[in-house]
Every structure is written in structure tokens, then in C-alpha cells.
Computed example of a mutant assay.
Amino acid sequence: MAKSANLYARIEPEVKEEAERILTVLGIPASNAINMFYKQIILQKGLPFDVKIPSPSRIDLSVLNEEQLHKELEKGYADKEVGRTKPAGKVFADIRKDYNL
């Protein structure tokens, strides 16, 4: 079995640059990352992540009618009532910690 094989792929220059910048910080050569990706495809018997259209994480309040707006407000109130919220100070502290700010 050959010790290596060549892979030729076209990729957007900005995507390549950003990914390689991150890989450099991690200390992983691009060829090793690609090899890891292919090994995960083999282990998972498919792509090692979900391929789907993400649901929108933010709601544009300006496009909601009154009924939809009330529904969203009720969801927020229900979350508060059962304790699925965090104090704003804790949220900002977590953000600062996560992003070393």
C-alpha cells in the first residue's frame, strides 16, 4: 500500500486561508487535517457532522405580525418561569471568559 496519495481539490481562497490560519494555531498541517477528516468519514461511514440547513437562531421582530410577536414573548416568559434563563451579568462574564476579553 502506498504511503501517500495526492488529492487535488478546488476551494475558495478565503476559506483555505482562514482554515489554515486556525490549523497553524492548533499546530496541525493541512494535510494531516484532511487525513483526519477522511478517517472520520470512514469511521462514521459518512460525513462526521450533520449536513442540514440550520434553523435561524435569531428572530427578526420587524417581520412578525402581532400574533407571532406575542407567541415569541410568551416563549420567553415560559423560559423565565421554569428557570431556563441566566442573569445578564453571568452571560456577559461567560462571554468574556470564552473569548478572553
Rank of each mutant, 00 (worst) to 15 (best):
Lys90His: 07
Ile53Asn: 07
Ser62Thr: 13
Ser4Val: 12
Ile34Asn: 00
Glu74Tyr: 04
Lys75Gln: 05
Ile28Ser: 07
Lys45Leu: 10
Phe37Gly: 01
Pro48Glu: 01
Ala19Trp: 03
Val91Asp: 02
Ser57His: 02
Leu69Gly: 12
His70Asn: 12
Ile41Pro: 03
Gln44Asn: 15
Leu47Ala: 10
Gln44Leu: 08
Ser57Cys: 03
Val25Cys: 04
Glu67Ile: 14
Leu73Val: 11
Leu26Asp: 08
Pro54Leu: 10
Val82Phe: 01
Phe49Thr: 06
Thr24His: 11
Asn35Leu: 10
Ala78Glu: 09
Gly46Trp: 01
Lys16Pro: 09
Leu43Gln: 15
Ile59Trp: 00
Lys90Trp: 09
Asn32Phe: 03
Asp60Tyr: 05
Leu73Pro: 08
Asn35Ala: 14
Ser31His: 05
Ile34Thr: 10
Ala30Phe: 11
Ser31Phe: 01
Glu81Thr: 08
Leu69Ile: 08
Arg21Lys: 14
Leu23Ser: 03
Gln44Lys: 13
Gly46Leu: 03
Ala78Val: 09
Leu61Asn: 05
Val63Phe: 00
Thr85Arg: 00
Leu64Lys: 01
Ala78Leu: 13
Val25Lys: 10
Gly46Asn: 04
Glu14Lys: 13
Ala9Lys: 00
Ala30His: 07
Ser62Gly: 07
Thr85Glu: 05
Leu61Gly: 14
Pro56Ile: 02
Ile53Gly: 05
Ala19Lys: 04
Glu20Ala: 04
Arg84His: 09
Lys75Thr: 05
Glu14Gln: 13
Glu17Tyr: 06
Arg10Asp: 15
Glu67Asn: 13
Thr24Asn: 14
Thr24Val: 09
Tyr8Lys: 14
Val51Leu: 11
Lys52Thr: 12
Ile28Thr: 10
Thr24Pro: 07
Glu12Ile: 10
Asn65His: 04
Asn32Trp: 00
Pro48Trp: 03
Lys45Trp: 01
Gly46Asp: 07
Gly27Thr: 10
Ile34Leu: 14
Ser4Asp: 08
Pro56Phe: 00
Leu47Gly: 03
Glu67Lys: 14
Ser62Ile: 02
Lys39Trp: 14
Glu67Gln: 13
Glu12Trp: 01
Val15Asp: 08
Val91Ser: 06
Asp60His: 06
Ala93Ser: 10
Ala30Arg: 12
Thr85Gly: 03
Lys90Gly: 08
Pro48Val: 03
Pro29Ala: 05
Asp60Cys: 05
